[in-house]
């Protein structure tokens, strides 16, 4: 049985009521599914991810993870065991603080520990395992801010993975990376997504960057889902050419 979280959005609007940034009539992702999301700037990709993480609330409609609401008090009560690994864009975190790489990865373990209970040896064992898995073992005591962009992204993936997430949400993880780092990151994601039964939502500007594990593709344009289906079919659809031309 899959350990991923299922996602259901129905009749959702986000933003100004007359001209919402995002409108989703119906979107469902089964537990363990890996969904790639592409679209031009302003298409609503990040908004969609934030909705699924409970960071923003819709004006109307429902967002359910494993049939439980994601936001508000009811969402908070249903938190236990949800375990979402979120890898945001760089503007969402403060990379200038003097945290070590190990500190940053260890923050991911907060998902498994109640408040007032500090991280213990088993937590740091998991942290060191994931740092090594990302090939950053030699740099674990270095400050996060001194790492290259590619290394920071790997650290954030380790941070997400260290809590054995049931849903992983990645927002343009390859943005601002050089070609070599992009492909390295793609290989890491390919391996992770194939090996584990978690649900994945991955936003990218670039179809080539999406790992093969993302067998389903969602095309977003102007706050609407333009096409949704198996990757090859979506890429062969007439609207795909229009959307890709805008990217």
């Amino acid at each position: 049985m899959s350990d991923g979280l299922s996602i259901l959005l129905s009749d959702v609007d986000v933003g100004p009521r007359r001209h919402p940034f995002l409108r989703v009539d119906h979107l469902q992702a089964a537990a363990g599914e890996c969904v790639g999301i592409i679209g031009p700037n302003g298409a609503g990709k990040t908004t969609l991810l934030k909705l699924c993480c409970g960071l923003i609330r819709p004006n109307r409609g429902t967002v359910l993870l494993d049939d439980r609401p994601v936001g508000g008090w009811r969402g908070w009560r249903g938190w236990q065991g949800r375990r979402i690994g979120y890898i945001p864009q760089q503007t969402e975190y403060n990379s200038h603080l003097p945290f070590s790489l190990r500190d940053v990865v260890a923050m991911g373990r907060n998902a498994l520990k109640p408040a007032l209970r500090p991280l213990d040896g088993a937590d740091f064992e998991a942290v060191d395992h994931w740092i090594a898995e990302m090939g950053l073992h030699d740099r674990r005591h270095q400050t996060f801010r001194s790492l290259s962009g590619g290394q920071q992204q790997k650290a954030l993936i380790a941070r997400a993975m260290v809590a054995a997430p049931r849903l992983v949400v990645l927002d343009e993880p390859a943005a601002n990376l050089d070609t070599r780092s992009r492909w390295q990151l793609r290989d890491i994601m390919e391996r992770l997504f194939r090996d584990r039964a978690m649900t994945v939502l991955l936003v990218s500007h670039d179809v080539e960057f999406l790992p093969g594990a993302c067998e389903r593709l969602l095309l977003l344009r102007r706050g609407r889902i333009e096409t949704d289906g198996p990757r090859d079919e979506v890429l062969a659809s007439p609207s795909a050419a229009d959307v890709l031309a805008e990217i």
Partner: peptide
Amino acid sequence: AFEKELKAVLFSRSLAAVTSAA
């Protein structure tokens, strides 16, 4: 007492909010 939560908020409030209900 809340070292791990405060560290996470310092790094990123939104990332911390997604990770832990506390």
